[in-house]
Amino acid sequence: MLRFVRQFSHHLIGYATWLPPLIWFNTYVAQVTFISGPSMYPFLNPQYNESLKRDLCLVYKLYAQWNLERGMVVTFRNPVDPDKITVKRIVGLEGDVIHTRPPYPQPTILVPEGHIWVEGDGDKSKDSNYYGPISHRLVTGRVTHILSPWKRAGRVRWWEHASSRSQP
């Protein structure tokens, strides 16, 4: 019995030493995560109204805050709730003039230095029209691949989605 406990704890500690490298990898290189909510409907979670299944996505974290482009699907820390990670599409970069949607108070806005304008594809989205332009420092990653469901699996072709509502 004692030998069993000793061996078991030995293996447990052996596996536990792999946790820090895993956390490092998930923070700085790549992470596989489920997308929840309808804010990117119909691009992500198109089955939102029909089933409880969620899309599984690959989020690439390396140099996430560098070379952001219009159309990219990014994950970022929610400016309203710092413990939440949100996924939206970049509509405008710094210096762009955006034609906003309600409930934003002004009809157009110039995106300030170091900030981006993010919006969800769907109607049920609390995005920059709700909390304004966000700092690029909040960005944690880019959604590069859809892994599941199998039918839509593949690379996220974000460059086909650059919005026409922003003017550089």
């Binding site: 820390r77 400016p79 420092r137 909040l138």
Partner: peptide
Amino acid sequence: FGPIPLAL
């Protein structure tokens, strides 16, 4: 630069 998000 205005109020900053707590996440920063």
